[in-house]
Design a binder for these strands. Sequence first.
DNA 1: AATTGGCACTCAGCAGAGTCGAGTGCCAGT
DNA 2: ACTGGCACTCGACTCTGCTGAGTGCCAATT
Lengths: 344, 344
Amino acid sequence: MVSERGLQVLRAIVQDYVETREPVGSKTIVERHAFGVSAATIRNDMAQLEDEELIAAPHTSSGRVPTDKGYRVFVDHLSQLRPLSTAQRTAISTFLEGATDLDDVLARTVRALTTLTGQVAIVQYPSFAQAHVSHVELVALEGGRMLVILVTDTGRVSQRMTQLRTGFEADDLTRLRDRVAALVTGRSVRQGAQAVAGEFVALDVERHEDLLASAVLRVVAEELEEFRQDKLVMAGTANLARREQDFRSSIYPLLEAIEEQVTLLRLMSEMVADAEGLSVSIGRENEAFGLAEASVLAGDYDPATHARVGVLGPTRMDYATNLAAVRTVAHYVGRLLEDDERSR
Amino acid sequence: MVSERGLQVLRAIVQDYVETREPVGSKTIVERHAFGVSAATIRNDMAQLEDEELIAAPHTSSGRVPTDKGYRVFVDHLSQLRPLSTAQRTAISTFLEGATDLDDVLARTVRALTTLTGQVAIVQYPSFAQAHVSHVELVALEGGRMLVILVTDTGRVSQRMTQLRTGFEADDLTRLRDRVAALVTGRSVRQGAQAVAGEFVALDVERHEDLLASAVLRVVAEELEEFRQDKLVMAGTANLARREQDFRSSIYPLLEAIEEQVTLLRLMSEMVADAEGLSVSIGRENEAFGLAEASVLAGDYDPATHARVGVLGPTRMDYATNLAAVRTVAHYVGRLLEDDERSR
DNA sequence: AATTGGCACTCAGCAGAGTCGAGTGCCAGT
DNA sequence: ACTGGCACTCGACTCTGCTGAGTGCCAATT
């Protein structure tokens, strides 16, 4: 068991270590923080914290450094997040205002978050698995090419080009469009994909019309599949290089995860949010994702789908400030997209 | 003046240094390369190379290391590039085959190039400044939203959504579409943008139809502007971390340039290609771009527009092999897109 | 029971000294 | 033009001793 003052000491250690990157000793603590006790007392508390594996010594008789578990306890006991300054808040709204479509909103969000935190920022697209297809459009281009456009009610647009082998007339096109539209519009992405798959087997390749349909349906299926895959935007990758000192081993796996995206997507979606929609994953807790030296802070901006904005950085980061930034940004984007939806 | 054997020695130094990352001395050279002379003779040659500033000593009396100028001479005297193995060639075609649209081709290209070279790979989109708009489509969505789609003859598609304030009928839409189409189709991106700008001033905001047109034209103008901006795809960023040892200072500016893209775009487009369409920029030659410790190899895949594929890495890299890879990949993509165009 | 001052002990980090060896530069000889 | 020989340089490594920050523990105090 850790005493109340023990937690205070832990907090002091985390704060000082995050600030200075130096292992912190009992003497420094009494100097910098107004505990009303002597260094020896702090030492006793520290011994307890060490028993609980909340702090550890890099080498015998040097200061102590928070362990992953220590950061965890620290974060869990963050009673209140320091709210952002008004300057920061206005910065966020300036960043976000004037955004046109969904892509734009999220691109601005991720930039805002990275400037605010100085870390790598991540923004998840709203999940489209439950999105409904609201519109289908086929556009004939010259040279027998066709553009197949899908739009969801959540505002995501996908367009893909295909090269058709068979010629077609204008009314072939409208009939085909109506046929595809009947299959997918109003349906969720998942249902739409099933419907398309079902139609596929029923095609009679002898019929010219079905031959055309098969090519288009294939593309539609691909696009629906793409919708089902979640998507990320990121920014501030270069910050990893600045914080390189904070990673014992190479930042290679981190850069790789960032480029891969798949790992980060899984990580982000598996995190468990608290009542406020915030979630934190620290160091070794990310081991399964090959990110044992990194922490991820995330905040839901869409409570229904758990779509999130987040921040990725070394375990040694300013959790209080960054969590506040994540929370505020998530809040802004959430409201922005909500208003957007309402106006639709 | 550097003697013929002097160049051989330079080549040996570059090769050994690239391989081992150790400054190379006269003794190592005679051991590893079959010059028919003694170490003392090599030393004399090396003294000359040093006078010419092609090699330099990290500290007095240690081996020599190629300077940027040395790499430059080395590259300029690369008489023949080692052609890729058949295994590598088939790897390239496997990577590229089955690509559907332009985005897909370039995405695959960049992946191929990064696996081949183990460096950061860069692919420029074909320049769209001279591209011609081939198709315009307006799609009405629910809630007064409209999707504005542009397609160029080079196969690039842009789609953007806008929220209209005014209602409209189906035939408003077709009339508007025809109006916009008349302005831009068949015109180059640049001309189209001018035409749109011209039309803009002529609008009478009192008329309902023109009110609608103004909203759409604004979006079209944005899209055309986006077309005019060149674009890059990249892959293999994580490789920078692996090669970090090769950069004296931080890799931060590199990661930043990669995220910015603008710098790289300028760099890539300012490079001067040789008769084969290859271009190399080494170390300090990139100083203006903040990449004084990096080299860029590029190869045109579209001689007309100088659209390029390229590789970015530390000055200490295997120029011969990587140049060969760049050349081959550029060649493949060039042919692929050409065939594509012809079939259109 | 909690706190404190005192004290012995540990150990990273630093500086100085010594050694080693790879490598150069130069010169006289072939 | 090339070569062997030789003195010289200097980074890298090792060893040594020192210092100081910091711990851990204990007996004394409140």
